[in-house]
Nucleic acid binder design. Structure first.
Lengths: 188, 188
DNA sequence: TCTGCCATGTAAAACGTTACATGATTTG
DNA sequence: CAAATCATGTAACGTTTTACATGGCAGA
């Protein structure tokens, strides 16, 4: 599948980035849905240059620190677009170790199960709060103002950002709701 | 982390299974949240036997077909329980290639984006229908009868099964809802 | 000057998928 | 008797993580 390849091509579609910058991007919003460590990114960048999908120029930062700024080539853009329009099949499995534990809940006492469940709820709620704060702070960037009833639209330069944030929020809300709904199983 | 190890130990906690049976289990409900191919399962089973967490007896099926029936040992049960009670940290990234494409939506035309979105919605809706049918069929097994107001409880032997099914349904409902809510971005 | 961040890489191990390989049993 | 399923394994390849390794830069 080589999804990392397309993640990198996609990031470079609109701007030049260094390997370090790409690593940083994966720690931001898109990291909710795809990421990689720098040890995977640097070899992938080299490979993409070899394949003619990227090129780079070396830039000096300060006195002598070299960084490589990568840009996408026409061939790279072409491959990216071919991938981007191809329909994404559903994965059979979306791995979730917590839910695997829940499948084996009969191995636990009521108290142990309750603790695990509470712990997961706590973490998911905290994550949800962070995501919602991020969303609130980005409302002006997204151009969504409650008073004027403005809405995100297809041509908005931050549509992708908006979509991943709202989707991450929806995912966490659903998780929190499911946990809350089933919490009663462990009390008493 | 060795999650597959614990998935196998968990499956063997209540009954004897062959490698083939374990492979089959991963194609059922728990496959929504964890799975592995037989090529990963057979070596893992051998390893778990070597580690003293499982043993097996060879059973003859029919005339000469040999199958290995695995059971968990006391050491295996001990390791399983230690894992099961340990709190699960949230993964930073829950990979979703479709959402990665959505982050790069600016590379697509309105029509292309609309097609992708519709395609994903169709697939998610279809999956949701299957899961809901499964749930409806299992209501008697779960002991949930609308007329008598019975409820799932902690000691129910199928609680794990119930939890993964309801969670998978919640996940798909949330996905479908999010897709539906944002579909308007691509029309006209 | 020290701490945290910027910056790039490689090596080894672990995890996961696809393909290769073989044969028995069951059901239509 | 043919096809689907049961049953077990290995090999090769691809992906991902952890650890090793090095050094520059900026601000307190």
């Amino acid at each position: 599948m080589r999804v990392l390849k397309f993640a990198i091509l996609g990031l470079l579609y609109r701007q030049e980035y260094s390997g370090y910058d790409i690593t940083s991007q994966f720690k931001k919003e898109i990291g909710q849905f795809w990421s990689a460590k720098h040890s995977q990114i640097y070899p992938e960048l080299r490979k993409l240059v070899e394949e003619g999908l990227l090129h780079f120029r070396t830039q000096i930062q300060g006195e002598k620190l070299e960084k490589k700024m990568y840009t996408i080539t026409d061939a790279g853009r072409k491959e990216l677009l071919a991938w981007a329009v191809s329909p994404e099949p559903l994965p059979e499995t979306e791995k979730d170790a917590f839910m695997l534990k829940m499948y084996f809940i009969h191995t636990l006492s009521r108290e142990e199960a309750h603790t695990l469940f509470e712990h997961q709820l706590h973490q998911r709620q905290e994550k949800l709060v962070h995501l919602e704060e991020e969303y609130q702070q980005l409302l002006p960037v997204f151009g969504i103002e409650r008073t004027e009833g403005k809405m995100m639209n297809f041509d908005h330069p931050h549509l992708g950002h908006y979509l991943v944030l709202t989707k991450a929020i929806a995912r966490e809300q659903s998780y929190v709701q499911w946990l809350t709904q089933h919490m009663q199983l462990f009390v008493q």
